[in-house]
Design a protein around this nucleic acid. Sequence first.
RNA 1: UGGGGUGUGGCCAAGUGGUAAGGCAACGGGCUUUGAACCCGUCAUUCGCAGGUUCGAAUCCUGCCACCCCAGCCA
Length: 545
Amino acid sequence: MDTTPHDFIRARIVRDLNDGTVKHEIITRFPPEPNGFLHIGHAKSICLNFGVADEFGGQTYLRFDDTNPLTESEGFVEAIKKDVNWLGYDWGDRLTFASDYFEQIYAFAEELVVRGCAFVCDLSAEELQATRGTLTTVGQNSPFRDRSIDENLTLLQKMKAGNFATGSRVLRAKIDMSSPNLNQRDPVLYRVIHAAHHRTGDQWCIYPMYDFTHCICDALEGITHSLCTLEFEDHRALYDWVLDNININFHPPQIEFSRLNLEHTITSKRVLRELVDQQFVNGWDDPRMPTLAGLRNRGVPPAAIRDFCRRVGVTKQENTIETELLDFCIRSDLEEKAPRCMVVRDPLLLEVTNFSGEDIRLTANWHPKLTEFGMRELVFGRKIYIDQTDFSEDPPPKYKRLVPGGIVRLRYAFIVRCDEVVKDDSGKIICLKVTYFPDSRSGNDTSGLKPKGVIQFVAENNALPIEIRDYEHLFLSKTPSSSTWQDSLNSNSVAVSNALVERTIYARSEQHWQFERMGYYFRSPGHDSEVKPVYHRTVSLSQRW
RNA sequence: UGGGGUGUGGCCAAGUGGUAAGGCAACGGGCUUUGAACCCGUCAUUCGCAGGUUCGAAUCCUGCCACCCCAGCCA
């Protein structure tokens, strides 16, 4: 089965290869800004850029777009590298930083000045904004627009030398203040910021803007296809203008695609930062976060994310993907990777009144279909636990579990009948007295009984405690607004409960598990055998009833 | 209102003049010692709308409508 994607970008690459536009290998880049963690939206871009290079035998740079020392830091660089790696991609020796090119970028700025294509502007940020014009009215030329080349060069050099205060002067491209494209209205190329940079330290006090930096870095690295999201479409004219007006011998094409939006999710770094800062979550890597680190901690396998990105496709259409698709990808990956076991969330004691003597040892497959997973031993005895929700005195229609007087199959064990419901003074059920049918043993059932349902159980003598954390969406709305996100914040996005598990899994090394009839769970790393293990719900099982 | 984009079923998405792929979801059924998985089946006479060209249009032309992005010394 051919699952290789065929989208307009890959079609473009094939065309460029066939008509000789690209004569050698395909080179792409993934250019994150190290001012936050990567999220599921970035995964789409990573899979696209690295995926395309893989498919066409090319290479991909991991290039940090670090031109704003005020918001960026080394910590984010490391987190991003870890996440890209985890997702399954390798940049080899192609790890670069925009700051690696500061010297060259500055030289191009001087070149622009010498060519009369850029000027130093003394307008304040407010004045600049006031003279930029609006969507429907043209802007006004800066009074500094016609400075001589010599004066501009001297001023630019003084900016670089640190003679001017932060924000006091900028270098602007001389393009067209009446352009209907706001980005072309003499955009700022360089600004003065007296701040230490995480890589270059105090070496610079002027920093290039994105529009000036990105195209130059792309050209310098020989990027054959510069892929970015739709909001940069208006910037393409500037991208091209810069490369057309400096002496550089390569001009990558910028190609835009629509970013990924997910229901119940916000992928705005600003909002994610607020969630972290205001402690609505426990950090960027909280399992509820849509960050790659968060998804990893929830137990989402990288292969599932790659599959998800593949199924989502690449187009220029705005889209909001249903969370069901991501869930589907996670389940289908875990279905054949996760061993099964039985867990009881809210234990309800069953006393098997006709059972006495030694516990019975039973065996069960770790996986219902994949025999290579092997088997484990189960215990059945006089006292066992089932989930409270698997018993009902007042069952809804089509209820298939245990009811007073009814029978149910205990998975991999025996059929039991509920004879008596024992309650305390307050009416709370404390125990169920049941009878088991010795001839109904799994695999050797001669009882002739046909219970409607099967439920999981753990024998008291085989139970060990664990903590499970069940997660829900962070936002109630399918399309939470990044400006009013607090309004739809889910105050019950995590439910912590104590549960009982078959004791054998304490010693197992697997992290991914399917707790039968409950969902896929992920054992939190960092919990050794001394303490009660914590399991995060990666995704529930699909429930069609 | 200027500019840049996008409109194919609930959500994605193929399709590039020859008579609407596929996935997710949903629904119906089968199988089942996980209400899981798996298997079968159903799900756009129609492609934002209106005209036009053509033997034939989602695909070409004209007009209109809707939605998204742009007025950071952020990226």
